[in-house]
Amino acid sequence: MTTSSDVIDDPPNPTDGTALPSATLGGDQKRSIEQITLLLFIVVPFLALLAAVPMAWGWGVSWLDLGLLVFFYFLGCHGITIGFHRHFTHGAFKAKKPLRVALAIAGSMAVEGPLVRWVADHRKHHRFSDAEGDPHSPWRYGETIPALLKGLWWAHVGWMFDKEQTPQDKYAPDLIKDPTMRRISRQFVLWTTVSLLLPPLIGGLVTLSWWGTFTAFFWGSLVRVALLHHVTWSINSICHAVGKRPFKSRDRSGNVWWLSVLSCGESWHNLHHADPTSARHGVERGQLDSSARLIRWFELLGWAYDVRWPSRSRIDSRRNTGQVRSRRRKETVKAA
Rank of each mutant, 00 (worst) to 15 (best):
T3S: 13
V7I: 15
I8R: 12
N13M: 14
N13V: 13
T15S: 12
P21R: 02
S22D: 15
L25V: 14
G26F: 03
D28P: 10
K30S: 12
I33Y: 14
E34S: 09
E34K: 03
T37H: 01
L38A: 07
V43E: 03
F46M: 09
L47P: 01
L47Y: 13
V53M: 09
P54K: 08
W57A: 07
G58D: 11
G58P: 00
V61R: 00
W63T: 08
L64H: 08
L69D: 00
F72S: 03
F72W: 12
Y73F: 12
F74L: 03
H78Y: 07
G79H: 07
T81V: 13
H85M: 05
F93P: 00
L99W: 09
I105E: 05
S108Q: 09
S108I: 04
M109S: 12
E112H: 08
G113W: 12
V116S: 01
R117I: 06
V119G: 05
D121C: 03
D121A: 06
D121K: 00
H125V: 03
G133A: 05
R140V: 02
I145L: 14
L149C: 06
L149H: 05
K150L: 11
G151D: 02
W153E: 00
A155D: 13
F161M: 00
F161W: 14
K163D: 05
Q165M: 12
Y171L: 03
A172T: 03
P173R: 12
D174T: 10
I176P: 05
T180M: 11
M181Q: 09
I184L: 15
Q187K: 02
Q187E: 14
F188D: 10
V194S: 07
L196H: 06
L198N: 01
P200W: 00
L201R: 02
G204Y: 13
T207R: 12
L208I: 08
S209N: 09
S209F: 06
W211P: 10
G212I: 00
G212R: 01
A216T: 00
L222D: 02
H229R: 13
I238L: 15
H240G: 04
A241N: 00
V242Q: 09
G243L: 01
R245P: 05
R245S: 04
P246Y: 01
F247K: 01
R250W: 05
R252S: 07
G254N: 08
N255S: 11
V256F: 15
W257M: 11
W257N: 10
G265H: 04
H269S: 06
A274I: 00
P276Y: 05
S278H: 07
G286E: 09
Q287L: 08
D289C: 04
S290G: 07
S291W: 10
I295L: 12
R296L: 14
R296W: 15
R296K: 14
E299K: 02
Y305N: 07
R308D: 13
W309D: 01
S313W: 15
N320Q: 15
G322A: 12
Q323R: 14
Q323T: 13
R328V: 03
R329W: 08
K330A: 13
E331N: 09
T332D: 14
